[in-house]
């Protein structure tokens, strides 16, 4: 029961509050009892109205002089010092960067030169090795050719000697065979002639 009464009061207050809240700006303009006797700012008969202008002129002048002669130059000094410091530091940094770039360029140049020198040395060594190998091969070939030639000469000599002995051996073998088979000693000239003709027929 009490709660219902309270809700009822709140509803009534709400119906009163809502339009009141909406009417607040309007109330500001048409508030009953608001005095409209005039603006004190327009009361130029009041000596303080003009007095504040004179005081204001003096205060503004003093403020201007203090700002322009002291406070603002102080700020400008700090700002220019900062600009100068930054420019100096930037200059140092640029110089350091230039030096570093030059050092890097020198390093690259030295590296490139070292690579070129190394490559040239490698090429030279390889060429020398190739020439040495070729020379050795040539010498070896020459030596082998000489040895082959010597061997062939020796073979030819041996062959010649062997071929020169073929008729003698054949003659001796033929005399021995004739003697063994027939018991007759064949005439040496006859056997030699026959062996000679047989060898000639065979190209020996």
């Amino acid at each position: 029961m009490a709660r219902a009464v309270m809700y009822d009061n709140i509803r009534r207050a709400g119906t009163f509050l809502a339009p009141s809240a909406l009417a607040l700006p309007l109330m500001a303009m048409v508030a009953p009892g608001a005095r409209a006797e005039g603006m004190p700012q327009l009361d130029f008969g009041n000596p303080y109205v003009i007095g504040q202008v004179i005081w204001g002129a003096g205060i503004f002048l003093v403020l201007y002089l203090l700002l322009s002669r002291s406070a603002l130059p102080k700020v400008e000094k700090v700002l220019s010092l900062r600009r100068q410091t930054i420019e100096t530091d930037l200059g140092i940094a640029h110089k350091a960067k230039t030096r570093a770039d030059e050092a890097v360029a020198d390093l690259h140049e030295a590296r490139r030169k070292a690579l070129a020198d190394a490559q040239a040395n490698v090429d030279k060594v390889v060429e020398e090795a190739r020439l040495a190998a070729a020379r050795q091969t040539e010498e070896m070939n020459a030596r082998l050719a000489t040895e082959i030639q010597d061997a062939e000469t020796r073979i030819a000599q041996a062959r010649g000697q062997a071929l020169a002995s073929v008729r003698e051996i054949s003659t001796t073998t033929a005399e021995t065979l004739i003697h063994q088979l027939s018991g007759i000693a064949a005439p040496a000239d006859f056997v030699t002639a026959k062996v000679g003709s047989a060898a000639a027929a065979r190209g020996l």
């Binding site: 303080y48 007095g51 504040q52 204001g56 700020v75």
Partner: peptide, 20 residues
């Protein structure tokens, strides 16, 4: 003829100068 208006002008000037 020193009212609260010039007084506040002085305060304003002091605040500006003190700030800097």
């Amino acid at each position: 003829r020193f009212s609260q208006s010039p007084m506040m002008m002085i305060v304003a000037a002091i605040v500006v100068l003190a700030f800097l």
